[in-house]
Design a protein around this nucleic acid. Structure first.
Lengths: 115, 115
DNA sequence: ACATCGTATCGACGTTTGTCAATGCGTGTG
DNA sequence: CACACGCATTGACAAACGTCGATACGATGT
C-alpha cells in the first residue's frame, strides 16, 4: 500500500474567487490524510526537525532525543508521515534518512488557498 | 476556553531557505490544532461547502444533507472547526451562519511553506 | 560466524475521536 | 402563551490513535 496520492494538483483554470464548488468526497479524503498526518504535535515537530536538518534530512536516531519519545514511537510517526507523502525514506548504510517532500507540502498549501 | 490562536504570524526576517530551525513545542502544538481540525474528511468537506456557499457562508441545515450525517454530528464538527479558528459563527435569526476565516487558512498555508 | 548498531514491527494499554439518539435551549410564529 | 424549528449539548459506544516495551530484521564491523 502506501499510496502517496499528493492531493491532486488540479485547480483547472480559475481566476479571482470564481464561483467555487465543494470538493468531492474522495478529494476531501485525500486532503484529510495529509492534514491528519500533520495533526499531531510530535509529527509537526518531526517534520520541522527534518526540514531544519543538515541537507534537509535526518535519520531516526537524530530525532528521538529532540522529541523525547521512544525509538519505536518515532518510527511509527515517520511511517505515517511517509504514507501521507510528506517525507521520503532513503536507506544509507545502516541509517534511514528521511527528507521532506516539498511538492506535497506545496500542494497542501495550495489546497488551503482554494477554500 | 476555545483559545483560537492563529498559528502565529511570525517569520521574523527570513529570505530564501535561510538556515531553518525547528519550531518550538508550543508552536508545533498550535499548528497541530489547526491541521488536526482539517484531518477529517467530513470537516474538509464542511469547510469546502461553506466556502462554496452563497456569500461564503452556510448554516448547519444546509450542511447536514450534503455530508449525510446527523445534525448533532455536524454541529460537533463545526465546533471543532470554530475552536481551531477556521470558521466563525454568526447567529442570524434562528439560523447559525458559519463562514470561513481566511486569515487562519492563509497562516496555515504559510506555515506549510516554512518547512 | 558473530556481535552490534540503527530501524521496523508487534502486542498491549489507556486515551481520544466520530457517530448516533435523545434532550435542552433560544428564537420566531400561530 | 404555546408550539415548531434550528442548533447545541449530553451520554453512550465502537473504532482509531499515541505510546511503550519487547522483539525481529538488516546492515556493519570484528
Amino acid at each position: 500500500m502506501t499510496s502517496v496520492t499528493p492531493i491532486a494538483a488540479d485547480a483547472p483554470e480559475t481566476c479571482c474567487t470564481p464561483a467555487k464548488s465543494a470538493v468531492s468526497t474522495q478529494e476531501a479524503a485525500r486532503m484529510a490524510t495529509v492534514f491528519k498526518a500533520m495533526g499531531d504535535p510530535t509529527r509537526v515537530r518531526l517534520l520541522s526537525l527534518i526540514a531544519a536538518g543538515e541537507q534537509g534530512e535526518a535519520c531516526v536516531c537524530d530525532l528521538t532525543d529532540p522529541v523525547g519519545l521512544s525509538q519505536g514511537t518515532v518510527s511509527h510517526h515517520m511511517r505515517i508521515l511517509a504514507e501521507a507523502g510528506l517525507v521520503e525514506r532513503e536507506q544509507r548504510g545502516k541509517w534511514a534518512y528521511y527528507s521532506v517532500v516539498r511538492p506535497t507540502l506545496d500542494a497542501a498549501a495550495a489546497a488551503l488557498r482554494t477554500f
